[in-house]
Amino acid sequence: MKLEMRDQPGQLVAALQPISAVGGNIIAVIHQRETLAATETLDVQIVLELPEEGSLPKLLELLREQGVSVVRIGEQRLLYECTLITIGHLMHTDLSDTVDRIDTTGSAEVTDLSLAMPAINSPSSARITIRSTTREEMKKAIRILRGVAEQKDLLIIEPLEGV
């Protein structure tokens, strides 16, 4: 996210404190003093991870209380990853449609796919990696995949540990 704050001592610390208050993890802080030296304010870009979707509104509220205004919230990265294996007639049941059903959710996508097709007419196996913005979205993507598997008579092998 990109933050705008008054160019005064202690302001950066004031902006960072709420992030740890909501359990967030700061990945990078980019401080571009020179470009905005003429103005009274300071622009700072912060890359961070938040523990869950719901902590973002709380963070924004805390930042406002500190007198820091948020100029822009950037693209959310896909933080949650889950790898599953599927077995069945994957090509005959339109593998790209299977992938599309997850991708069209907009909040989860298939980021990796390895396919093994031992012989014509025998079942193939694929390892599918899905990434999503939130844990909820991942659960939803897996539910969609289960539904597709039932419809297309595919076996889905999920990981033992949750998302």
Binding site: I87, G88, L155
Partner: peptide, 25 residues
């Protein structure tokens, strides 16, 4: 309940590639 009758050696290899394996849990 899902059994293991449909499992393939390829599926086990795909798991193995990621230092994983498949077990009936």
């Amino acid at each position: 309940r899902t059994g293991i009758t449909l499992l393939t050696p390829e599926a086990l290899r795909l798991a193995e590639d990621q230092d994983c394996t498949i077990r009936l849990i």
